[in-house]
Design a protein around this nucleic acid. Sequence first.
DNA 1: GTCCAGGGCCGTT
DNA 2: AACGGCCATGGA
Length: 235
Amino acid sequence: MKITPKSLYQILFKHFGKLNWWPTDYDYHKKTGSDPRFEVIVGAILTQNAAWLNVEKALENLKSKTLLDIKTISKIDIKLLQKMVKPTGFFNQKAKRVKNLAEYLESNYTGNLDSFFKRNLKEIREELLMLNGIGPETADSILLYAGNQPIFVVDAYTKRICKRLPIDINPTYDEIQNFFQDDLSKKYKKNEILKIYNELHALIVIHAKTYCKSKPNCIKCPLKVYCKHAKELTQ
DNA sequence: GTCCAGGGCCGTT
DNA sequence: AACGGCCATGGA
């Protein structure tokens, strides 16, 4: 049986319901006057091949010392930043990446994320991809979850699921992204797309953590009637 | 002890 | 273009 991005969304939404994805610390940003979007940006870098629990620890380290804003990070002592982000692993490169991005935003946009995001989507994306340590997934996460730009985020989970489901595309980043965006942008209204991209990515993550793990747990999987992998297991 | 988590870079084929 | 090694911590 065929499956489309829209039906994938509907099935997963029915199964998991609404998710509170990529939360930011409202109290912290209210108290300090910092931009909550920058917390998302930093989180997007720190979560590279890392468990979110460890990212939360790093963000807490930064917030407990009131360091989580663009101007402060752009001037931070790199050794201190390494110490703060250590729980997320790869802390040398991640500290460099976070500081580098903060410096970039500070010097080119005076640390103002409104002027950074208030431009053409492709333009912002190209710009993010130029920066060291910002690949397609991190760029798109920043665009979608910090910038509220309509772009679908593809991650390792999305690739895994696409490989197992009967989806006839080669599972590269761009192919998968186009596959999702082409279908969803046709079937949903423009004012719904942002929410759909946002929620579907979150649903894919929870689905991959619950059922479509590296060692899959197909017994109660809501997609098993569609899935090549689940059928192979029952043979 | 082993596996793996909300990737990206760089060098080799 | 695609692949492999590398970066590194912490929880299961």
